[in-house]
Protein backbone atom coordinates (compact mmCIF):
# COMPACT_ATOMS: atom_id res chain seq x y z
CA UNK A 1 0.00 0.00 0.00
CA UNK A 2 1.00 3.60 -0.61
CA UNK A 3 1.92 5.60 2.49
CA UNK A 4 2.72 9.26 3.01
CA UNK A 5 5.22 9.71 5.80
CA UNK A 6 5.81 13.17 7.10
CA UNK A 7 9.01 13.83 9.00
CA UNK A 8 10.19 16.75 11.10
CA UNK A 9 13.96 16.83 11.24
CA UNK A 10 16.77 19.06 12.33
CA UNK A 11 17.60 21.53 9.59
CA UNK A 12 21.22 20.33 9.51
CA UNK A 13 23.40 19.74 6.48
CA UNK A 14 23.64 16.02 5.94
CA UNK A 15 20.25 15.22 7.44
CA UNK A 16 18.58 14.74 4.07
CA UNK A 17 21.33 12.44 2.84
CA UNK A 18 20.83 10.23 5.89
CA UNK A 19 17.15 9.85 5.07
CA UNK A 20 17.74 9.18 1.40
CA UNK A 21 20.63 6.84 2.22
CA UNK A 22 18.45 4.88 4.61
CA UNK A 23 15.92 4.23 1.86
CA UNK A 24 18.48 3.04 -0.67
CA UNK A 25 20.53 1.06 1.84
CA UNK A 26 17.55 -0.89 3.11
CA UNK A 27 15.86 -1.24 -0.24
CA UNK A 28 12.81 0.86 0.58
CA UNK A 29 11.04 2.46 -2.28
CA UNK A 30 10.69 6.25 -2.72
CA UNK A 31 7.81 7.39 -4.93
CA UNK A 32 8.34 11.05 -4.19
CA UNK A 33 10.23 13.17 -1.74
CA UNK A 34 9.86 16.81 -0.81
CA UNK A 35 11.74 18.80 1.75
CA UNK A 36 11.83 22.44 2.88
CA UNK A 37 12.35 24.45 6.05
CA UNK A 38 9.34 25.19 8.24
CA UNK A 39 8.26 28.35 10.07
CA UNK A 40 10.89 27.35 12.64
CA UNK A 41 14.16 27.68 10.74
CA UNK A 42 15.85 24.98 12.83
CA UNK A 43 13.43 22.37 11.48
CA UNK A 44 12.82 20.93 8.03
CA UNK A 45 9.76 19.06 7.04
CA UNK A 46 10.16 16.16 4.70
CA UNK A 47 7.38 14.23 3.05
CA UNK A 48 8.09 10.89 1.49
CA UNK A 49 5.61 8.71 -0.33
CA UNK A 50 6.49 5.07 -0.37
CA UNK A 51 4.95 1.72 -1.13
CA UNK A 52 5.25 -1.33 1.06
CA UNK A 53 3.40 -3.88 3.14
CA UNK A 54 2.86 -3.41 6.87
CA UNK A 55 6.19 -5.02 7.80
CA UNK A 56 8.12 -2.71 5.51
CA UNK A 57 6.26 0.43 6.56
CA UNK A 58 6.77 -0.44 10.22
CA UNK A 59 10.51 -0.81 9.60
CA UNK A 60 10.63 2.44 7.59
CA UNK A 61 9.06 4.44 10.38
CA UNK A 62 11.20 2.77 13.05
CA UNK A 63 14.41 3.18 11.11
CA UNK A 64 13.60 6.82 10.32
CA UNK A 65 12.90 7.46 13.99
CA UNK A 66 16.27 5.96 14.82
CA UNK A 67 18.11 8.59 12.78
CA UNK A 68 19.49 11.09 15.25
CA UNK A 69 18.38 14.06 13.11
CA UNK A 70 14.75 12.95 13.00
CA UNK A 71 12.69 14.71 15.64
CA UNK A 72 9.23 13.33 14.93
CA UNK A 73 7.28 11.63 12.22
CA UNK A 74 3.80 10.54 11.31
CA UNK A 75 2.36 8.18 8.75
CA UNK A 76 -0.36 10.48 7.36
CA UNK A 77 -2.13 7.65 5.61
CA UNK A 78 -3.07 6.16 8.97
CA UNK A 79 -5.67 8.94 9.41
CA UNK A 80 -7.67 11.51 7.49
CA UNK A 81 -5.32 13.79 5.68
CA UNK A 82 -4.93 16.27 2.87
CA UNK A 83 -2.41 15.60 0.18
CA UNK A 84 -1.33 17.99 -2.55
CA UNK A 85 1.09 18.02 -5.37
CA UNK A 86 1.95 20.84 -7.74
CA UNK A 87 2.59 20.27 -11.44
CA UNK A 88 3.83 22.60 -14.17
CA UNK A 89 3.23 21.19 -17.62
CA UNK A 90 4.04 22.51 -21.09
CA UNK A 91 1.49 21.46 -23.67
CA UNK A 92 1.47 21.87 -27.46
CA UNK A 93 -1.41 24.18 -28.31
CA UNK A 94 -1.91 25.05 -31.97
CA UNK A 95 -5.01 25.28 -34.15
CA UNK A 96 -8.07 23.39 -32.92
CA UNK A 97 -5.98 21.82 -30.13
CA UNK A 98 -5.65 25.21 -28.42
CA UNK A 99 -9.27 25.40 -27.35
CA UNK A 100 -9.32 21.75 -26.44
CA UNK A 101 -6.35 22.13 -24.08
CA UNK A 102 -7.95 25.18 -22.49
CA UNK A 103 -11.18 23.25 -21.90
CA UNK A 104 -9.40 20.30 -20.31
CA UNK A 105 -7.46 22.71 -18.16
CA UNK A 106 -10.70 24.34 -16.94
CA UNK A 107 -12.24 20.99 -16.11
CA UNK A 108 -9.25 20.19 -13.92
CA UNK A 109 -9.15 23.73 -12.47
CA UNK A 110 -5.69 24.29 -13.84
CA UNK A 111 -4.31 27.74 -14.51
CA UNK A 112 -2.55 28.76 -17.64
CA UNK A 113 0.52 30.59 -16.38
CA UNK A 114 2.46 31.11 -19.60
CA UNK A 115 1.49 31.31 -23.24
CA UNK A 116 3.17 31.37 -26.65
CA UNK A 117 1.49 30.95 -30.03
CA UNK A 118 2.44 27.28 -30.01
CA UNK A 119 2.01 26.18 -26.36
CA UNK A 120 0.50 26.67 -22.94
CA UNK A 121 2.20 26.19 -19.60
CA UNK A 122 -0.37 24.97 -17.12
CA UNK A 123 -0.14 24.93 -13.36
CA UNK A 124 -2.19 22.31 -11.57
CA UNK A 125 -2.45 21.29 -7.94
CA UNK A 126 -4.22 18.34 -6.42
CA UNK A 127 -3.69 14.79 -5.40
CA UNK A 128 -1.20 12.80 -7.40
CA UNK A 129 -4.09 10.87 -8.94
CA UNK A 130 -5.62 14.06 -10.23
CA UNK A 131 -2.33 15.10 -11.83
CA UNK A 132 -2.03 11.67 -13.43
CA UNK A 133 -5.56 11.98 -14.77
CA UNK A 134 -4.77 15.36 -16.31
CA UNK A 135 -1.69 13.95 -18.04
CA UNK A 136 -3.82 11.11 -19.44
CA UNK A 137 -6.47 13.52 -20.62
CA UNK A 138 -3.96 15.67 -22.47
CA UNK A 139 -2.28 12.69 -24.06
CA UNK A 140 1.41 11.98 -24.37
CA UNK A 141 1.75 13.34 -27.90
CA UNK A 142 0.77 16.86 -26.81
CA UNK A 143 3.01 17.05 -23.77
CA UNK A 144 6.33 18.87 -24.10
CA UNK A 145 7.56 18.85 -20.51
CA UNK A 146 6.33 17.93 -17.08
CA UNK A 147 7.64 18.91 -13.66
CA UNK A 148 5.98 17.75 -10.46
CA UNK A 149 6.80 18.83 -6.92
CA UNK A 150 6.19 15.52 -5.20
CA UNK A 151 3.58 15.11 -2.52
CA UNK A 152 3.13 17.31 0.52
CA UNK A 153 0.62 16.36 3.13
CA UNK A 154 -0.95 17.40 6.39
CA UNK A 155 -3.40 15.75 8.77
CA UNK A 156 -7.05 16.81 8.77
CA UNK A 157 -8.59 18.36 11.85
CA UNK A 158 -6.72 19.47 14.89
CA UNK A 159 -3.89 16.96 14.89
CA UNK A 160 -0.56 18.66 14.25
CA UNK A 161 2.97 17.45 13.77
CA UNK A 162 5.17 19.78 15.79
CA UNK A 163 7.85 19.62 18.46
Amino acid sequence: MRHIISVLMENEPGALSRVVGLFSQRGYNIESLTVAPTEDSTLSRLTVTTIGDDTVIEQITKQLNKLIDVVKLVDLTEGEHIERELMLIKIKATGAQRAEVKRTCDIFRGQIVDVTPAMYTVQLTGTSDKLDAFIDAIGASAILEVVRSGVSGIARGERVLSV
Binding site: T55, E58, K62, N65, K66
Partner: peptide, 11 residues
Amino acid sequence: IDPASIQKTVR
Protein backbone atom coordinates in the same frame (compact mmCIF):
# COMPACT_ATOMS: atom_id res chain seq x y z
CA ILE B 1 16.39 -1.03 23.66
CA ASP B 2 15.90 -0.56 19.92
CA PRO B 3 12.27 -0.49 18.76
CA ALA B 4 13.47 -1.27 15.22
CA SER B 5 14.77 -4.65 16.39
CA ILE B 6 11.33 -5.69 17.51
CA GLN B 7 9.31 -7.51 14.84
CA LYS B 8 11.98 -6.87 12.24
CA THR B 9 12.41 -10.46 11.07
CA VAL B 10 10.25 -12.63 13.28
CA ARG B 11 6.80 -11.09 13.32
